[in-house]
């Protein structure tokens, strides 16, 4: 299941890259590309003079070999210049030219950002979902669900600037914005909140539905009949059953955060994996771009798989035989 999907994803990105818009040789040579001799030289150095099939097999080899190839900036020229000029802002470690190191280095930043967003979501969205369920069909419920729809419908590149304007200009809570200064800097707060608004509705809805379904169940009455404190009734008997769909969707949310941090990174100028993807797409640094896409596809496929397993682990009724 995993391997064939990944290979096909590779084939698609590679084909698109092969017939793609930006000639890697031109990207490397810049103005010099009209010099036919230089052109042929670089083309050979990049291995682009070989047939498509050979190139693809070679590409698969480097990917599965764990060494994901080299950024075009390794060959000097415009691509690297552009990458450097694009790489403004703090925290860039733009020195490595190994695709793997570039992707993993940037992924670490996106992962930290996603982690905060996830913390924010699990605390805040689950609480709101429980509240909406308990206050079912009241104004509070209605307000929570509607505002979650609003928060999740509006894209990050609208919410982001609006929050910036509010919390930097109108009520100056934050002074420095943009860039990345580590996970525990104040700069991480706003981007994490903006990132969390996307999947907010999913979590609120799932939590609400889960709790509502469990509220009237006989086993909750049994738990109360034992004289358990309400806290334990909710925590032991309701939450676990109600949270199974939420936890499984948290898996998908996590991969969604990692791949969707693109806009947040663009707005707040955070050198994460999404920003790397856009930079390399624009500069024609295909080896890196393909590395990002492949890696994200891998995350998505793996998370889908893990979600199924997690579901089995949480719900004793599901057995694998």
């Amino acid at each position: 299941m995993l391997a064939p999907t990944v290979i096909i994803v590779m084939l698609i990105t590679f084909t698109l890259g092969y017939y793609g818009p930006i000639d890697p040789v031109r990207a490397v040579l810049g103005e010099e590309w009209e010099d036919e001799l230089r052109y042929a030289e670089v083309k050979k150095a990049l291995g682009l003079d070989r047939p498509f099939v050979i190139q693809f097999l070679d590409y698969m080899g480097t990917m599965f070999g764990g060494n994901w190839g080299q950024s075009l900036s390794a060959f000097g020229g415009v691509a690297s210049d552009r990458a450097v000029s694009e790489g403004r802002g703090a925290g860039f470690t733009g020195t490595s030219t190994s695709v793997r190191e570039m992707v993993l280095g940037r992924l670490a930043i996106s992962a930290q950002l996603s982690f905060w967003a996830l913390v924010f979501l699990t605390v805040f969205a689950i609480l709101l979902g429980v509240l909406a369920a308990v206050k079912q069909n009241t104004t509070i419920d209605y307000a929570i669900v509607t505002s979650s729809i609003i928060a999740s419908s509006i894209p990050a590149y609208v919410i982001g600037p609006v929050l910036l304007i509010i919390f930097v200009l109108k009520i100056p809570v934050f002074k420095t914005v943009g860039g990345w200064d580590g996970m525990f800097s104040r700069q991480a707060i706003l981007p994490a909140i903006v990132l969390a608004t996307g999947p907010m509705l999913v979590i609120v809805r799932q939590t609400r539905a889960g709790i509502v379904e469990v509220l009237g169940k006989d086993f909750v009455r049994t738990a109360r009949a034992k004289g358990l404190p309400e806290r334990l009734v909710v925590a032991r008997h309701m939450l676990r059953t109600a949270m199974i769909p939420v936890l499984t969707s948290l898996g998908l949310v996590t991969s969604g955060l990692l791949t969707g941090s693109l806009f947040v990174e663009q707005i707040f100028n955070i050198p994460g994996i999404g920003k790397l993807a856009i930079q390399t797409l624009m500069s024609g640094d295909h080896p890196v771009f393909m590395g990002v896409v492949l890696f994200q596809a891998l995350i998505i496929v793996t998370v889908n798989l893990l979600t199924d397993l997690l579901y089995g682990g949480l719900d004793p009724r599901v057995t694998y035989d």
């Binding site: 009949a225 034992k226 004289g227 008997h237």
Partner: peptide, 19 residues
């Protein structure tokens, strides 16, 4: 509840927590 007065319910299929 549970300590001085206990109750056995009618529906054993649904009256216990599945998880």
């Amino acid at each position: 509840r549970g300590g001085k007065i206990a109750m056995v319910f009618q529906e054993p299929m649904t009256a216990l927590t599945p998880t």
